[in-house]
Design a protein around this nucleic acid. Structure first.
Lengths: 211, 211
DNA sequence: GTCTATAAACTGATAGAC
DNA sequence: GTCTATCAGTTTATAGAC
């Protein structure tokens, strides 16, 4: 199980050269997700990648830069997922469903990477954080745009658009915290469940037993 | 603002004696929430409490024990909030609304404490973690119980009860991550918004524009 | 109970051989 | 590019004076 996960995460560093840098990024994701950035030592990362402690500094200037590279690639992937759903030729309800399904599923399937992406921002330096924050704002506004479209067109009944948008994003992001590959739910199931729940959240109605 | 927050958090350690231990717990919450457990030094905690580094070890055996005390008191408070709503004499819809409103509001109002409670579990030792995990399972089952009651009585239309329960809990917990006292929402407003959103989540209906 | 001083271990990062 | 060896600084925790 662990090795399968590690393989899957290695595959995500397609553009990175040389191979040793990819191994270090993959080892970093594993270690940061497991223990947190500050509890992880450069020795641990290098060891997981099968190298000496010094080898890390050939490919990354500092431990923080390794984190930044992980965070950047992860955020770009997450942004693309939401942007593709938001830009699709479909109704707001279908776009929202797809955005939530794919975004939540990504956080489940890549929960190790997602955990680092979402919960280790604190450890980034000021300039690196600013760069990541731009990506995060874009993800936020893509999602809010879908909801705004739906409300404008009468598809959704939402009172507090920024609040609902924030809650939907928060719901999906937190999948990274609780999801476990050993648990009873597959990433696909999480995506389907969450798309359904969010669909209900944007639907105002006087259904059964609603006062 | 910082001093007001600090005062508010100090008030939470009512039962703890002596006063120096309360100051250390309060300083620990502040520091852990700001930088994370592993990035916080015992020097920093003691400094914030106006003491020398060695003074911490008079009141706590280790830094981890300080974290455990914070985590335990926080989890007990959170559990009580959910249990009181779950045990109220009211309809499932009212009990769920109250549970979500109060639980989400607590995570907003006490977001520093809640951040430590929810995001520093990793740093606990094995035995301490096991003790906390019991409290967490209880919170989980209290909430699921409300939803089960509602489904049984026909008040709620929920397909996946454990999944919905997990999502509701996750939604509320993650408030601690994003909530900022400087933001535009008050804890009361967050509670009201979340109670509304969760109310919709458990309502199946063929409302406006739902396929 | 609190302080100053310090032990003992570990950490991120570098130097220089190969 | 990678290694071994190591520096300089920091960390948790303790010893002993007051």
């Amino acid at each position: 199980m662990r090795e399968v996960d590690a393989e899957a995460e290695v595959a995500a560093w397609d553009g990175v050269e040389p191979e040793a840098a990819r191994r270090l990024l993959s080892a970093g994701v594993e270690a940061f997700a497991e223990r947190g950035y500050h509890a992880t030592t450069t020795r641990d990362i290098a060891g997981r990648a099968g190298m000496s402690p010094a080898a890390l500094y050939i490919h990354f200037r500092t431990k923080e830069e390794l984190l930044f590279r992980i965070s950047k690639v992860g955020h770009e992937r997450a942004r693309r997922i939401v942007a593709e759903a938001a830009g699709a030729q479909a109704s707001p309800r279908e776009r929202l469903g797809r955005a939530v399904r794919d975004f939540a599923r990504w956080h489940a399937e890549h929960h190790t990477t997602a955990r680092v992406v979402q919960y280790e921002l604190q450890a980034l330096g000021e300039e690196h954080y600013a760069e990541i924050a731009t990506l995060r704002r874009d993800i936020d506004s893509q999602l809010r745009g879908i909801i705004e479209d739906g409300v404008r067109g009468g598809d959704f009944a939402v009172d507090d658009i920024p609040g609902t948008s924030l809650a939907v994003l928060s719901l999906c992001v937190d999948v990274a915290r609780w999801f476990s590959a050993a648990g009873s739910r597959t990433p696909d199931e999480v995506g389907a469940l969450y798309a359904d729940l969010v669909g209900r959240m944007v639907t105002g109605c006087a259904g059964p037993a609603r006062p």
